[in-house]
Simulated scan of single mutants.
Amino acid sequence: MAKKYFILFLLLFVSRLFSQNFDINTLRSINVNRNADLDATFKHVTNSYAIVSVGIPLTLYTVGLIDNNTGLRQKALFVGESVAASVFITIALKETIKRDRPATSYPEIEKLTSSGGYSMPSGHTSIAFATATSLSMAYPKWYVIAPSFVWASAVGYSRMHLGVHYPTDVIAGALVGSGSAYLTYKINKWLNKKRSKEQL
């Protein structure tokens, strides 16, 4: 519960730290002045969040079943649980904060992809960072960590390029996603310790 309130505090702090002027001015520089030749590329990047975030834990779990590898299955479940936690927290925050999408308030912002619901925090970014963080915790190697966070950051940037999120939505999404993975790790660690004590 304390972690949940800490994350909420961070989101509110970030929201206050960056004024609405900063938010819209930065978004204008990214969206209005964008290189339109990259629109299709960023649409692919933004859509990759679901394929990667569902595909990785499913693939790991399937390989774990085939190889009868309990450790691999546990890592797959950890990644999947982290993503699920980020979805739950993101939805709760969206419904609490109720921030409109940029194009609703600023008609010069060109919305290039479909988007539903409220804006803060970015769900795509949250899920991408939950995947990147949990995967990096499960496999703490530079060749896993670096591409994971480059991809997650690209997903976050794509949401601004496509005009559906403010910068602070993306920052908040990254915090929620990373925080969800860390919270899931701590809960799993506590549950495992509890089970070990019960078996003694």
Rank of each mutant, 00 (worst) to 15 (best):
Ser114Leu: 08
Ile171Ala: 13
Gly173Ile: 05
Val63Glu: 06
Thr62Asn: 10
Ser105Ala: 14
Ile127Leu: 13
Ser115Pro: 01
Thr113Pro: 00
Thr131Met: 14
Val176Ala: 08
Arg99Leu: 08
Asp39Thr: 02
Val176Asn: 03
Ile97Gly: 02
Ser115Thr: 00
Arg34Pro: 01
Ile56Phe: 08
Leu112Lys: 00
Ser180Cys: 13
Ala2Ser: 15
Gly116Arg: 03
Ser29Asp: 02
Val83Gly: 03
Tyr61Thr: 04
Thr131Trp: 15
Tyr49Arg: 02
Arg195Trp: 12
Val32Ser: 07
Leu183Pro: 01
Arg28Pro: 04
Met120Thr: 10
Leu77His: 08
Pro167Cys: 13
Leu60Met: 13
Ala152Ser: 09
Pro107Val: 07
Val164Trp: 05
Ser180Thr: 05
Leu72Asp: 03
Gln20Ser: 11
Ile171Gln: 05
Asn31Cys: 06
Trp151Phe: 05
Leu12Val: 09
Asn35Lys: 00
Ala174Asn: 04
Val164Leu: 11
Asn68Ser: 13
Asn47Trp: 01
Asp169Gln: 10
Met1Gln: 07
Val176Gly: 03
Ala138Thr: 01
Ala84Asn: 05
Trp142Arg: 05
Asn188Ser: 10
Asn47Ile: 00
Val164Lys: 04
Gln20Trp: 11
Ala138Val: 09
Leu72Met: 15
Tyr157Met: 05
Leu17Thr: 06
Ser148Glu: 11
Val144Met: 12
Ala36Cys: 05
Leu60Val: 06
Gln20Ile: 15
Asp100Tyr: 07
Leu72Ile: 06
Ala132Val: 03
Val79Leu: 13
Leu93Phe: 09
Ile56Thr: 12
Val164Ala: 07
Ile89Phe: 11
Asn33Glu: 13
Asn69Glu: 11
Ile91Thr: 09
Leu38Gln: 00
Ser82Asp: 11
Thr46His: 02
Leu200Asn: 13
Asp23Met: 12
Thr90Ser: 14
Arg159Ala: 03
His161Cys: 01
Met137Val: 07
Tyr118Val: 07
Val79Thr: 03
Asp23Glu: 15
Asn188His: 11
Ser134Arg: 04
Tyr166Ser: 01
Thr59Pro: 05
Ser86Ile: 06
Val63Leu: 13
Phe129Asn: 00
Ser105His: 09
Glu95Lys: 11
Leu10Trp: 04
Glu198Asn: 13
Asp67Arg: 14
Arg101Tyr: 02
Arg73Asn: 08
Leu27Phe: 04
Leu58Phe: 13
Pro107Ile: 09
Lys197His: 12
Phe13Thr: 05
Gly80Val: 03
Thr41His: 09
Ala146Asn: 11
Leu8Ile: 10
Arg101Cys: 04
Leu112Cys: 01
Val14Ile: 12
Gly173Trp: 04
Thr70Ala: 14
Val63Arg: 06
Ile97Thr: 03
Ala130Trp: 06
Ser86Gly: 06
Pro57Tyr: 07
Ile171Thr: 03
Phe129Cys: 04
Tyr61Ile: 12
Thr104Arg: 14
Tyr139Glu: 09
Ser158Tyr: 06
Asp67Tyr: 11
Gly117Leu: 14
Gln74Val: 09
Met1Lys: 10
Gly177Ala: 15
Trp142Phe: 10
Ser180Met: 15
Asn33Thr: 04
Thr70Gly: 08
His124Ala: 12
Thr125Arg: 05
Met137His: 05
Gly55His: 08
Val87Tyr: 12
His44Met: 02
Ser196Pro: 03
Glu198Asp: 13
Lys98Arg: 14
Arg159Phe: 01
Lys98Ala: 12
Arg73Ala: 09
Asn35Leu: 05
Lys197Tyr: 14
Ser15Met: 12
Lys194Gly: 07
